[in-house]
Structures are given as structure tokens and as C-alpha cells.
Design a protein around this nucleic acid. Structure first.
Lengths: 211, 211, 211, 211
DNA sequence: TGATAAGCGAGACGGTACGTCTAGTCTTAAA
DNA sequence: TTTAAGACTAGACGTACCGTCTCGCTTATCA
């Protein structure tokens, strides 16, 4: 990964020609561009090099595999998976429903599906290093969702002792999974998903059920 | 997929030498065997052919790619992903907790993780045909879980109008997802996941909360 | 070769379905037809079978290899390499010159060149059986040429003790060789070839030199 | 052919890693070695690569087919077809007879026969490029023979206007042809061949006939 | 100001696997 | 028993990428 070579924050001035930041960025850009039109499997290091106007050696000097390049693209947000904003009106159930309706439209766009697949395949290449990165992938954090849940927790709306991360996964992971298989769920399925989890989270009596 | 060529149920007598069922099965067996010790990436068609004592041509005659072979292995249950049995004691919450504790032990064995990864990678190869198969994969059905939920529904324990499939996904998909990334969740995380969803499913007052 | 299986002239009635002479001939015809438009290398047994409306097994039942089929086509004259007639006016030198001028036109047609090449390549496949056939190939006999020389010998025009076959080869082989390499010799080269050999053959004083 | 890529005598400095001359030579050597024990048909590109310690791609990078490799081996004399020396005692007839007696022994050795066959088969693969090379093959020049004939011509021993190349072919081509078919001619046949042609070449009265 | 040390694009290298092709054999049902 | 059909094993084909290794060149720091 690139970071390894840059970790010399204020260290010795590194003799020799310094790393070309232009080349570095060109590789990431080229990869992003290519992933928009091809799957991880179809993507080749040679194509990245050619598209970036960079030599293969330069890629291998800074990344140890194609998976590493793809993961850096993903994890540094170069591919910018546009997230739907999470509203905060005070009504947790309503906010989550608004959010998931937006996700159904946004997350199942072809480009995003392809990106998510690339990320997963790259992460599953069997290399322990990339695997670790996959686990950290911010994409799986369901960050905005978890944040909104924590807000509700602070407002005392939730039952005590529930695991916020687990609850966020209960809503977010099924969404991601259907994204990977390319089959967008129906609106009612999604709403029911949110309803069940939110109901299970909230203090009895607080808020209102969907039905 | 193999089934294409056999669809002539009662049709014309099929001239020429018939397909060798022995070879067909040998390929599936060999693939299963190899997948136990290597990842999808490491698996090669040549190795399958050699292990099965079959010529490469025979593989390509009946399957159009390595992904197709792997998917057939998975989807026909040749790889037999052993599921943890789902108890049915009458207490839905307790049954689900028992089940998920078993899954934490069983599903995160190295072999199962490898199989699940192979299935996903094979399904994400960008081919529309294999993609369709991935969506149908029985593995994602969370079959036993959904069945138990339906049983509770028939017993009138659940709130009305909830989508059983969505609820099963809320518990099952996070589990599969962590299986893919190779990071087994903690027991408390898993229990909280079950608790939230089951609570959200059940009629208020029915059953008891974990806390 | 086909002859092996036919030797039962008036023998036992041969049980079972009799050999299809039609298939036999169809194979030879198809081969001839295909060789007119493709080289020996490009010719495939499957193409012969398909063109002849015959199964591959039928071919292998009667011939032991592709080379054997091609050689039978050649050697039984099915491919009928049209020979230029050899005149016999009494003037050996003039007759030979007339003949070679005709050969320059006739033998270097694309079809004949292709056939000769196929014959040679088939014969050189390293199989002793086909090799023997190549040696016997009537094509190399320079039959008409040798016959005319013998006529001159009987007429007492030739020096004594010369080997007619060797002399025929001295004229014929260079012609065949240039046929194989696809480079037709010039008229003057050919005439000089004939002139030198005929001069060397004839009794001093008999006939007249070209120059 | 390899020469194509090297033609930049004094041209641009050739960027990138230069061609490995070691690999080039290793391929030619390996091919020569393999051809000594196997026919052209039996020779495979994979075997050449393996024997040369070179990758298949390197072979295909510089030669477009197996035929091209074999032809380069032949035409650059790497296979060194040992020629029998041509004496020059002043007596043309005697010299040619000495030469052909040597050829009968030397040229029909198994190795030479195999090489000649490989050269011919390689040249007859139907590719215009290799065909052209076949025509130029120095082997067919009958170089030493033609040279000796020209010496006699300069000495004024020959009739005027005869084509030396044609005469050399009249002796050399029949020899090559029998080499290809693997049937060594008899001594008397060979001597008669030489006698007829030399007699036809020489000025009447010069030299003496065999009989 | 030169020597030394990387980094760079280009592209050849040894490998490995791909998916296709053909040879020649084997197994059906029909004739 | 032979036929046409067609599946079978075996193995070479030529291509595509992989990840490594020179080249000649450029761009830096250090002496």
C-alpha cells in the first residue's frame, strides 16, 4: 500500500529521485475510470498502467497487487460512493425510512454495484493484508446510520444495552448484500426491515409502529 | 450449466454417445475437493480436469467457465454447507439465540468461509447467467431461520404485517457478511442482533427481552 | 489403406451391414475437393467427414491417419494431376522442348502446386508406411518423359549405357522441385535444362544442339 | 523473423529492455537439438521453449510460427548441413563423380534426411513469408557444384550458352528429392546422372565419356 | 559540480493459465 | 457388423496477464 512508503513524516530526506505524486494519482484515477466500465476480473494491471501513462514497474513499486490498488481507490474514497444523507427530524423511524428509500434509488445504480463488487472481490483475494482492509472498509460501517442511532440513544429513546453497531448491521448489511447480488429489494421489504429493527431498538411506547 | 443439455425430457432419442454422467460427477467432486484447500482464484480449470481424470474439453463442453462449475457445485449442494439445526422449543427468542451461538462456531470454520467466498467471487464474475444463479443461492435464504419465524407467525406471536424474509435477512445477512470478511463477531454482538430483531418482530408483551 | 478390407473378392458373405462403397468414395471425393482450396495442414479429418457426410469413425476404420487418406487420393489418381502429353515427332530434342513448355504452363497452376505439396507433406509425416507410398508415387516417375527417352533408345539415337531413369529425373525432378517451392522457372532456364540433358544423352552427331 | 526487429542499425536508441540475444540463440540451439531426434511434426513450440529455458511468449514475440523458427535455424546455417567438398583437379567429370559418391554417403545420413524434411515441411506450411524463404534456401543452390561448373566455364571447357544453374539443378535436385523420400539411389544411377549432364555440358571432344 | 542514489517509462523476460482446436478412440441407436 | 452422431482423452496451439528484470533517462541529495 502507498502509505507504507510515505510514513517518513518528517524523517530523513530520502536520497534519490522522490516519488512522483503525479504518477501515484494517475494510477488511482485510471483505476477509478476503468472500474466504471469493467469488473474487477476484467481490470488488468497492464490496462491501468497504459491508461495512467505509467509503467507497470511503478505500480508494483508502490502496491503489491492489483487488489491493493483497487482497495486504495475504494478506501481513500477516490471512488466516492455517494451516500444518501441521513435526516434528523427527531423521529427515528421516519428518518430511517426516508434514508432507506433514498438508498434504494442511489445504491443500486450500476456504477455503485460494480464498485461494491470490485471492493469485495479485491478483498477476498486471499491475501491477509487486503482482507484486513476489507474489514475496516468504511462502507460497511453504515456510518450515517449508526450515527443517527447513537443520537437516538443519547436522547434516551432506545432500550438499554442494545448494541448499536449490531443494529446498524441488521439494516445495512442486507442492503449491501442485495447490492452485491444486483437484485434491488422491493420498497415494502425495505420498509419492513427498518420497521422491525427500529421497533426492536426503541423503548416500548416510544415512537409509533408502522402498522 | 449442465442442465441445458439435458432438457430433452421425453424428446428425440438423442443420437450419438450420451453424456458421461461419471465425468460430470467427477468434475463436481474434484472441484469440491480442490475448493477445500484452495481459494477460487487459486483453483484452475486444468487442475479440476486433472483431479477429475477428465479432459479440459469435457469441462468446457458442459460449462462455459470456471465460475459456472463452481456455482453448480455450490447450488446443487455438492459442497453441502452444513447448517446448524434450528431448535423449536416454543420460545422464539431462546431458539434464535441457541441457533446463532451454534452458527458462531460452525459457520466460521475455515472451510465454510472459503466455500462462501468462492461462491460469492464466482457469482460476481460479471456474467449475467451466473449472477442470476447467485441470487437464487439457497445459502442466502436463511431457510431454517425463516421457517422458525413463520412458525412463530402461525402461533400468533408476531406483530402483523411484518415481512418474514426481511427479518430473516436482518439476522442472517450480517452473519454471512462477517463470514465473508473472515471476522467472526463477538457473542454479545450476535446476541444483541438477535435480541433487537426478535423484539421488533414480536407482539408487544409476548416473550421477554434479553435485558 | 482401403485395399486391405476389400480383399474378400468372392469370399464369405460377410455378416452384418456391408461396407458402404459410397462412403469410401465420398471420403476420397471430399478430400480431393477440400485439397483444392486448402493446404494439407489446413485439411482436417473432421472437415473431410462433414464434407463427405460420413462419420469420423468410418474414416478411421479404413485409413489409419489423415496422411493415409491424402495419399490414397493422390496415388489412385483421384486427384488426377493432368499431365501434358509428350509428342513423338522423331526429333527427341524438339519433342522434349515442346513438352517442357507445356509443363511450365500446366504444372504451375495453383491447384497442381497445392496437390503436389499435400502429397509431399503427407508422405513426410514420419510414418514408414506412408513414406514407402511416397517413394512409389507415380508422379515422380516422369512416366511420359521416360517412355519417350526409351523410344529414342530403341531407335538407337542414344549413347549406350546411359540410365534412362536417371536422365528422366535430371529433367523431371528440377521441375517438381520448383513446383513445390512455388517458383516457376523461366523459359530459357527450362530449355537449357532440356538441352543439356538431351545433348548428354544423344549419340554424338545425332540431332542438333540448341545453339 | 528475428531480423525484422533488429533492423534499426543506427536508428533511434530503442527504448525499453533490449532483446535478449542469449534467449534468441537458445531457441535456435534448442530447435536444432530437438530436430536431430524428432520430425517437424513431432516438434512442438512448447518443447522448444522448455528445452531452451525460455517462455513460449518469447518465441511468439520474435517468430510468428514454429515454421519460422525452423526456417531460421535452417537458413542461418545453425543446423549446419555438412556439405561434401568439391574437388577441383582440372577434370570436371572426375571431380563431379567424386563429389556425388561422397554425397551418397554423407547426405543420406538419418540426421540430414530429417533436417531436409523439416525444412521442406516448414517451408510448405502455406505461409507466403516462409515460402519465400524456402525459395532462397541455400541448400537448394547446389552451391559448390555450381561453382565448379562455373570454373569449368571460365576454363572454356563448356559449350556456350548453357545455363549453369539449370545444369546444377539437373544433378542436385534429383539428389535432394531422393533424400526427401528417404531412398538413396544406387551408385550406378548416380554416376549415370552425372555422366549425362556433364557430357551435355562440355564442348564436344573435351574430356572423356564414362563409357 | 560532479558523484551517487533513487524513481521513471518502456518493454522484454520466464511463467502460468486460459479457452480453442484437432487427432484419434469409444459408445450409443438405427440400419 | 457397419453406419452416423457425437462425447471422450490427450495434448498442442496461440493469447493474455502476471510479477520481475533491464535499459536509458531524469531528478533529487550529498560531497
Amino acid at each position: 500500500m502507498a502509505s507504507e512508503a510515505q510514513r517518513s513524516d518528517t524523517a530523513e530526506p530520502r536520497r534519490g529521485r522522490p516519488r512522483s505524486e503525479a504518477s501515484h494519482q494517475a494510477v488511482l484515477d485510471a483505476t477509478t475510470r476503468l472500474l466504471r466500465v469493467s469488473s474487477y476480473e476484467e481490470l488488468t494491471v497492464e490496462a491501468i498502467a497504459s491508461e495512467a501513462g505509467v509503467s507497470k514497474q511503478t505500480i508494483y513499486r508502490w502496491w503489491k497487487s492489483k487488489a491493493a490498488v483497487v482497495l486504495e481507490v475504494m478506501l481513500t474514497g477516490d471512488a466516492e460512493i455517494e451516500l444518501v444523507p441521513m435526516p434528523s427530524t427527531g423521529d427515528l423511524r421516519a428518518d430511517c425510512l426516508t434514508w432507506i428509500r433514498g438508498m434504494l434509488v442511489e445504491a443500486f445504480r450500476e456504477t455503485h454495484v460494480g464498485m461494491a463488487r470490485s471492493l469485495v472481490v479485491a478483498g477476498l483475494q486471499g491475501d491477509p493484508g487486503t482482507e484486513r482492509l476489507l474489514q475496516q472498509a468504511s462502507m460497511w460501517d453504515h456510518g450515517l446510520l449508526a450515527e443517527r442511532l447513537r443520537e437516538a440513544e443519547r436522547a434516551g429513546e432506545l432500550r438499554e444495552g442494545v448494541d448499536i453497531a449490531a443494529a446498524a448491521s441488521a439494516i445495512g448489511d442486507p442492503l449491501i448484500f442485495r447490492m452485491l447480488t444486483g437484485s434491488a429489494p422491493s420498497l415494502s421489504w425495505s420498509e419492513s426491515l427498518v420497521d422491525v429493527v427500529v421497533t426492536g431498538l426503541m423503548r416500548p411506547g416510544a415512537g409509533t409502529s408502522l402498522n
